[in-house]
Amino acid sequence: DETGKFLVLALYDYQEKSPREVTAKKGDILTLLNSTNKDWWKVEVNGRQGFVPAAYVKFL
Rank of each mutant, 00 (worst) to 15 (best):
D1F: 14
D1E: 13
D1V: 14
D1A: 14
D1S: 14
D1K: 13
E2D: 12
E2H: 14
T3A: 12
T3D: 12
T3F: 13
T3G: 13
T3E: 12
T3P: 13
G4Y: 12
G4K: 14
G4F: 12
G4R: 13
K5V: 12
K5E: 09
K5D: 08
K5T: 11
K5Q: 11
K5M: 12
F6K: 12
F6N: 10
F6G: 10
F6W: 14
F6D: 08
F6V: 15
F6Y: 12
F6Q: 12
L7M: 10
L7P: 01
L7S: 06
L7E: 05
L7H: 09
L7Y: 14
L7N: 04
L7Q: 10
L7I: 08
L7F: 14
V8Y: 06
V8S: 00
V8A: 05
V8H: 04
V8K: 00
L9K: 07
L9E: 12
L9C: 14
L9Q: 10
L9H: 02
L9A: 03
L9I: 15
L9W: 04
A10H: 03
A10P: 01
A10T: 09
A10L: 15
A10C: 15
A10R: 02
A10S: 04
A10G: 02
L11H: 01
L11E: 02
L11G: 02
L11M: 10
L11P: 02
Y12Q: 11
Y12T: 06
Y12V: 09
Y12D: 07
D13Q: 03
D13I: 10
D13L: 08
D13H: 05
D13E: 07
D13K: 03
D13M: 08
D13G: 06
Y14W: 10
Y14K: 01
Y14C: 12
Y14N: 01
Y14R: 00
Q15W: 13
Q15T: 14
Q15N: 13
E16Q: 13
E16H: 08
E16Y: 03
E16C: 13
E16F: 05
E16N: 05
E16K: 12
E16I: 05
E16V: 04
K17Q: 13
K17E: 06
K17I: 07
K17W: 04
K17A: 10
K17N: 09
K17V: 08
S18P: 02
S18M: 06
S18C: 12
S18I: 04
S18E: 08
S18T: 11
S18H: 11
S18D: 10
P19L: 11
P19N: 10
P19R: 08
P19S: 12
P19V: 10
P19K: 09
P19H: 09
R20E: 12
R20K: 11
R20M: 13
E21D: 05
E21Y: 07
E21I: 06
E21C: 12
E21L: 06
E21V: 04
E21T: 08
E21R: 03
E21K: 03
E21N: 04
V22R: 02
V22F: 10
V22T: 04
V22Q: 04
T23Y: 03
T23C: 10
T23P: 04
T23N: 04
T23W: 04
T23F: 04
A24C: 15
A24L: 15
A24K: 03
A24R: 03
A24I: 15
K25C: 13
K25I: 07
K25W: 06
K25T: 07
K25A: 07
K25V: 08
K25P: 02
K25F: 09
K25Y: 09
K26G: 04
K26N: 05
K26Y: 06
K26D: 04
K26R: 10
K26W: 07
K26H: 05
K26M: 09
G27P: 02
G27T: 03
G27D: 04
G27Q: 03
G27S: 03
G27N: 05
D28C: 11
D28I: 07
D28S: 06
D28Y: 08
I29S: 02
I29T: 05
I29V: 11
I29Y: 05
I29E: 01
I29H: 03
I29G: 01
L30N: 00
L30S: 01
L30G: 03
L30F: 06
L30C: 09
L30D: 01
T31F: 11
T31R: 12
T31K: 13
T31M: 12
T31G: 04
T31E: 07
T31V: 15
T31P: 04
T31H: 09
L32W: 04
L32M: 04
L32A: 02
L32I: 09
L32Q: 00
L32V: 13
L33I: 14
L33R: 00
L33Y: 02
L33G: 02
L33Q: 01
L33P: 01
L33V: 09
L33A: 02
N34C: 13
N34R: 05
N34V: 10
N34P: 04
N34H: 06
N34G: 06
N34A: 08
S35N: 12
S35E: 06
S35F: 12
S35A: 14
S35R: 11
T36N: 12
T36K: 11
T36S: 13
T36I: 09
T36H: 11
N37K: 04
N37T: 05
N37C: 12
N37H: 10
N37A: 06
N37Q: 08
N37L: 09
N37G: 09
K38C: 13
K38Y: 05
K38P: 14
K38N: 10
K38V: 09
K38G: 10
K38W: 07
K38S: 12
D39F: 15
D39H: 14
D39S: 09
D39V: 13
D39R: 11
D39P: 02
D39M: 12
D39Q: 10
W40G: 00
W40E: 01
W40P: 00
W40A: 00
W40N: 00
W40I: 01
W41E: 00
W41M: 03
W41P: 00
W41F: 09
W41C: 06
W41R: 00
K42P: 01
K42W: 15
K42T: 07
K42V: 14
K42E: 14
V43K: 00
V43Y: 01
V43D: 00
V43E: 00
E44G: 03
E44A: 07
E44S: 08
E44K: 03
V45E: 00
V45D: 00
V45I: 15
V45S: 08
V45P: 00
V45G: 03
V45H: 09
N46C: 09
N46D: 12
N46M: 08
N46Q: 08
N46I: 04
N46L: 08
N46Y: 05
N46G: 10
G47P: 01
G47V: 03
G47W: 05
G47A: 03
G47Y: 04
G47E: 03
R48W: 08
R48E: 05
R48C: 10
Q49N: 05
Q49E: 11
Q49C: 11
Q49H: 07
Q49M: 08
Q49W: 07
Q49G: 03
Q49S: 10
G50S: 01
G50V: 05
G50A: 03
G50T: 02
G50R: 00
G50D: 01
G50K: 02
F51A: 01
F51C: 10
F51E: 02
F51M: 06
F51Q: 01
F51R: 01
V52C: 08
V52N: 02
V52K: 01
V52E: 01
V52Y: 11
V52T: 01
V52H: 01
P53R: 05
P53F: 14
P53L: 12
P53D: 05
A54C: 10
A54H: 02
A54L: 05
A54E: 04
A54W: 08
A54M: 05
A55F: 10
A55E: 10
A55L: 10
Y56S: 13
Y56E: 02
Y56C: 15
Y56W: 08
Y56V: 15
Y56I: 15
Y56T: 11
V57N: 00
V57M: 11
V57L: 15
V57G: 00
V57D: 00
V57K: 00
V57I: 10
V57Q: 01
K58P: 02
K58F: 09
K58R: 11
K58V: 14
K58E: 14
K58N: 06
K58Q: 13
K58M: 14
K58L: 12
K58Y: 09
F59G: 06
F59M: 14
F59H: 09
F59D: 07
F59T: 08
F59S: 10
F59V: 14
F59C: 15
L60H: 06
L60G: 02
L60T: 06
L60Y: 09
L60D: 02
